[in-house]
Design a protein around this nucleic acid. Structure first.
Lengths: 222, 222
DNA sequence: CGCAATTTTGACGTAGTTCAACACGTGTGG
DNA sequence: CCACACGTGTTGAACTACGTCAAAATTGCG
């Protein structure tokens, strides 16, 4: 079994509280689905370590990557009001999640209001994350600014729970990133190369380091 | 005072419950900010009627429209865990909102767990809305597919609380839409014209009607 | 080590955005 | 009534960013 990368920082986060009251950690191996589209939605998951990829099946039966989830973030949170999951969630590399069973949560929640407050905070944070993610990709006309904004978003999300705000291990393949951003693998590769030549990023396989935050921001918001 | 358009459908929605327990409706006039970036965050708002535009101030001091909010949706929900609002929220046309005061909510919430459950459902729905909005605009390489997906998303969001799923009154100006989607007003105009010529949409000023859903979907997901 | 999968680079053509300039309708105020 | 500003829609011409095809380079895994 490979080691799991990028664990959640120690500390009394909402997730660790949920975890201690409700459930045990689950280990999910590479490429294993956490859940699939249309499956009955009976649990919310909080990522503790590793990375998940969310996908949709589009009309022509080609997969569309609609997002990635990192430690501290929720997956399947619309299970609270939906009967079925709306997308697929698949582990990228080996991961660890905290499974929040909805039945259990409902029962415990009635007795422990602080558990509900906890969930409210988690949902609020997830909301903020989604809004930020959205505003980082919307209204970007060039692939360069889109990729720059995407990278900045990734680093910001990782720095909350990760020791370094400038280093990032992204277990995702190039195709998945390109798919997610809506361009071809070649284009992605080219821009990565360009960013390296300019000294903005340092990339070795799946390890990425930010070298020039200011310039990257300038490209993103241009 | 102008009439307020597109009110929330009658019925026991989560928002009407919040409203009856916590607060009174607030009327917000056209172009009036609900709150601004950096202001202390002391309340969540739920839109009851009308439309709000969310904006960010980018580096070069030009406004970027990061989203629109319609009846049944939340604004400022990250106030739960943030000290300050992260963006501007401005009324487009005359609107009506339900203000959920956080202090009040905290006090009432301790006594009434059902109020907390209510909020949890609201947040979960908002989460789902954000994720759907995101996946509708991400990975669109042509302006046509982006606009088609944006329109479909608008209609879907409005049909939940609106009588007609095919008609939409969008009080927002062309520039705001173009800004939000990241292209020029000309491009927007061209595509709107094209969609009308093809018989996909009928547009009269700010009234939009879907004529051919299937073809629109095909363009969006191509 | 060797094969397969993934990633990078190059050259080229084109679709589609952008820029610029104008036309039209409407509201406003002198 | 006309002059003006403003929002919106239209059109043409130029450019460039991205997709496509093809091949080389690198990585990963048994």
């Amino acid at each position: 079994m490979q080691p799991i990368c990028r664990p959640l920082k120690a500390g009394k986060t909402e997730i660790s509280i949920m975890d201690s009251y409700l459930s045990k950690h689950n280990i999910v191996s590479n490429a294993t689905p956490l859940f699939l589209h249309q499956e009955p939605a009976d649990a919310i998951y909080a990522v503790c370590a590793g990375c998940f990829k969310l996908t949709e099946q589009s009309a022509e039966n080609n997969e569309k990557v609609i997002g990635f989830r990192f430690p501290g973030e929720l997956i399947g949170e619309d299970a609270i009001h939906n009967q079925h999951y709306q997308y697929n969630a698949v582990a990228v590399g080996h991961t660890s999640v905290c499974k929040i069973d909805l039945k259990e949560l409902n029962e415990c929640g009635k007795l422990m209001p602080e558990l509900q407050l906890n969930l409210i905070t988690l949902l609020s944070k997830q909301n903020a994350m989604l809004r930020e993610e959205f505003s980082s990709v919307v209204a970007k006309h060039t692939a360069e600014s889109l990729l720059a904004a995407f990278m900045l978003n990734l680093f910001k999300r990782n720095s909350r729970y990760q020791e370094s705000g400038t280093k990032l291990y992204l277990p995702v393949g190039r195709d998945a990133i390109a798919n997610h951003l809506g361009f071809r693998r070649e284009t992605l590769s080219r821009i990565f190369s360009k960013f390296q030549q300019k000294g903005l990023l340092s990339i070795q396989a799946k390890n990425i380091e930010i070298l020039d935050l200011a310039k990257l921001e300038h490209i993103a918001y241009s």
